[in-house]
Simulated assay, not measured.
Amino acid sequence: MPTFINHRFRVAMLGTLAGLLLVQSAHAGTLEAVNHTHWAINRFSVDGRSGIDIIGPYQGGGGGCCYSAPSRWQPGMTVRVDWETGAGSSEGFPGFGDWDNFLIWKKEIESQKRRHSKVVPIPDYTGQKTCGLTVHFLPCEELQVTTSCYAYGSPEYPIKTPQHLPEPQSCPK
């Protein structure tokens, strides 16, 4: 085999091998979310990767790409979740024909937006298949995450928190 072709073959094989190792070392999947609060999740990201969807109160969504869990779970693994909450409905929307009232309404909606950031532990997934990451948004800016491949609500899904959680009168500090 000529040297040039042999070299190209080796480069192609190394690229294929590297790709296979990458697939085995990290299981990529989407970023999903479940919102257990009366606020809308206007946006969220995990370690800087966008979760894409706006998620209404007591709904699920997401679909951002991608979260890759390392092939082996290790104690102390975390992710940073950044998110923005806001009004969960368009109640009181005066329409665009009444511009002055629209601006007042818009200012009220904007004043309810809050940005949050939290580092949360990734639960042990040793011996389990991983499928991206699902973030559960809970009252009082609490979060839970899972790498489970099961759908929220299925008996095998590890987080059993009900979809509708009552908002507490006050949150612990």
Score class of each variant (00 low, 15 high):
Ala87Ser: 05
Val79Ala: 06
Asp82Asn: 07
Lys107Trp: 10
Ile104Pro: 00
Trp105Gly: 00
Phe102Leu: 15
Trp105Tyr: 01
Asp98Thr: 11
Trp99Pro: 07
Lys106Arg: 15
Lys107Phe: 04
Asp98Trp: 03
Trp105Pro: 01
Lys107Val: 10
Ile104His: 06
Phe96Thr: 14
Asp82Arg: 06
Asp100Met: 15
Leu103Phe: 12
Phe102Thr: 11
Thr85Leu: 05
Pro94Trp: 01
Glu110Trp: 15
Val79Gln: 12
Asp98Cys: 04
Glu91Lys: 05
Glu110Gly: 06
Trp83Cys: 06
Ala87Asp: 03
Arg80Tyr: 08
Asp100Trp: 15
Asp100Lys: 15
Glu108Trp: 01
Glu84Gly: 13
Glu108Tyr: 03
Pro94Tyr: 02
Leu103Ile: 11
Trp83His: 10
Gly86Ser: 11
Ser111Asp: 11
Asp82Cys: 02
Val81Tyr: 03
Gly97Asp: 14
Glu91Cys: 01
Lys107Gly: 03
Arg80Ser: 08
Ser89His: 08
Phe93Gly: 02
Glu108Asn: 04
Lys107Leu: 09
Ser90Phe: 10
Ser89Gly: 02
Thr85Val: 05
Glu84Asp: 12
Trp105Cys: 04
Phe102Met: 12
Phe96Ser: 11
Ser89Thr: 07
Val79Ile: 14
Ile104Phe: 04
Arg80Trp: 08
Glu91Ile: 07
Glu110Pro: 04
Val79Thr: 12
Gly92Cys: 03
Glu108Gln: 06
Leu103Val: 09
Val79Lys: 10
Asn101Ser: 14
Pro94Asn: 04
Phe102Trp: 14
Val81Gln: 00
Ser111Cys: 04
Gly97Ile: 11
Gly92Leu: 02
Asn101Trp: 02
Gly92Trp: 01
Gly97Tyr: 02
Glu84Met: 14
Asp98Val: 07
Trp105Arg: 05
Val79Ser: 11
Gly86Glu: 08
Asp100Val: 15
Ala87Asn: 07
Glu108Arg: 07
Ser111Glu: 09
Glu84His: 13
Trp99Lys: 12
Asp82Tyr: 04
Pro94Leu: 07
Glu91Ser: 05
Ile109Val: 07
Gly88Ser: 03
Ile104Gly: 00
Lys106Thr: 09
Trp105Gln: 06
Ser90Pro: 01
Asp82Gln: 06
Glu84Val: 15
Ile109Asp: 00
Phe102Lys: 11
Asp98Gly: 07
Asn101Ala: 11
Trp105Leu: 03
Pro94Ile: 04
Ser89Gln: 02
Ser111Tyr: 09
Phe96Val: 15
Arg80Leu: 10
Ile109Pro: 00
Asp100Gly: 13
Ala87Val: 08
Ile109Phe: 00
Ile109Ala: 00
Ser111Lys: 14
Glu91Pro: 00
Glu110Arg: 14
Gly88Ile: 10
Gly88Met: 09
Leu103Cys: 06
Thr85Ala: 00
Gly92Asp: 01
Trp99Cys: 06
Trp83Gln: 11
Glu84Gln: 12
Lys106Cys: 10
Val79Trp: 06
Pro94Ala: 01
Gly88Glu: 08
Glu91Phe: 03
Asp100Thr: 15
Val81Gly: 01
Ile104Ala: 05
Ser89Val: 07
Ser111Trp: 03
Ala87Lys: 05
Ile104Cys: 00
Thr85Ser: 03
Lys107Asp: 09
Gly95His: 13
